[in-house]
Amino acid sequence: MQVTWGNVTVTFSNPEEAKKYAEKVARKLGGQVELHNGQFRIK
């Protein structure tokens, strides 16, 4: 499962870890987490 924002992509084998990481990054950037085609995207 991947977490992407800007031109950065981070890949996780565990979807739960990916979700936690995406939420943490979104909080830092003041963005929203979207699940899109099996990727968490931060907008």
Results as ranks from 00 to 15, higher is better:
S13F: 10
Q32P: 03
I42P: 03
Q2R: 10
K43N: 12
V33P: 03
L29K: 04
H36E: 13
W5Q: 02
K43A: 10
E23P: 00
V25Y: 03
E34A: 05
Q2K: 13
N7I: 08
L35V: 12
W5V: 11
M1K: 07
R27Y: 10
K24Q: 13
G31C: 06
E17Y: 11
E17S: 12
K28L: 14
P15H: 14
K19L: 14
K19E: 07
A22F: 02
S13V: 09
F40C: 04
G6I: 04
M1L: 12
R41P: 02
K28C: 15
A22K: 01
K20W: 10
Y21S: 01
E34N: 04
T11P: 05
A18L: 02
V33M: 05
R27W: 09
G31P: 01
I42E: 01
T4Y: 06
E23K: 07
N7W: 07
K43Q: 12
G31A: 10
K20A: 14
A22V: 03
T9G: 02
T9H: 05
A26R: 03
Y21G: 01
G38L: 04
W5H: 07
K24M: 15
M1T: 15
Q39C: 08
Q2H: 08
G30L: 05
N14P: 02
E23W: 09
M1Y: 15
M1N: 09
L29A: 05
A26W: 02
K19F: 14
V25L: 14
T11I: 13
T11A: 08
P15A: 14
V10Y: 12
A18E: 00
L35Y: 15
F40V: 04
V33D: 00
V33E: 00
E34I: 13
V8G: 04
T11Y: 14
T11C: 08
Q2G: 07
V33R: 00
L29R: 04
L35C: 07
R27F: 10
G6H: 08
K43S: 11
N14H: 08
A26V: 05
A26F: 02
Q2V: 12
F12G: 00
H36S: 10
T11R: 11
G31Y: 06
K24T: 11
T11G: 06
N14R: 09
W5N: 03
N7P: 08
Q2Y: 07
V25D: 00
L29Q: 05
V33H: 01
S13A: 13
T11D: 07
G31K: 05
G31M: 09
V3A: 01
G31L: 08
N7H: 12
V25I: 15
E17N: 10
K28M: 14
R41Q: 14
R27M: 11
T11L: 11
H36G: 05
Y21R: 01
F40D: 02
W5S: 03
E16I: 13
N14S: 13
V33L: 06
V10M: 12
K24L: 13
I42F: 02
Q2C: 06
S13N: 13
K20M: 11
F12D: 00
W5A: 03
K19A: 10
G38F: 04
V8F: 12
K28R: 13
V8A: 05
N7T: 11
A18V: 01
N37H: 07
P15C: 11
K28A: 14
E16C: 10
H36T: 10
P15N: 08
A22P: 00
F40W: 15
N37S: 05
G6W: 11
G30V: 04
L29I: 14
K43F: 14
E17M: 13
V3T: 01
E16M: 12
W5K: 01
G6K: 06
N7R: 10
F40Y: 15
S13D: 13
P15V: 14
V25S: 02
F12H: 02
F12E: 00
E34H: 07
E16N: 10
F12W: 03
R41K: 11
G31S: 07
Q39P: 01
M1E: 03
E23F: 13
V10Q: 05
G31T: 06
A26D: 00
P15L: 12
K24A: 15
V25W: 11
A18Y: 02
K28S: 09
F12K: 03
T4A: 09
Q39S: 11
F40S: 00
F12P: 00
Q32N: 08
K28H: 12
E23R: 06
K20F: 08
I42K: 01
H36F: 12
E34T: 08
A26Q: 03
L29N: 05
E23L: 10
G6P: 02
I42N: 01
L29P: 01
P15M: 15
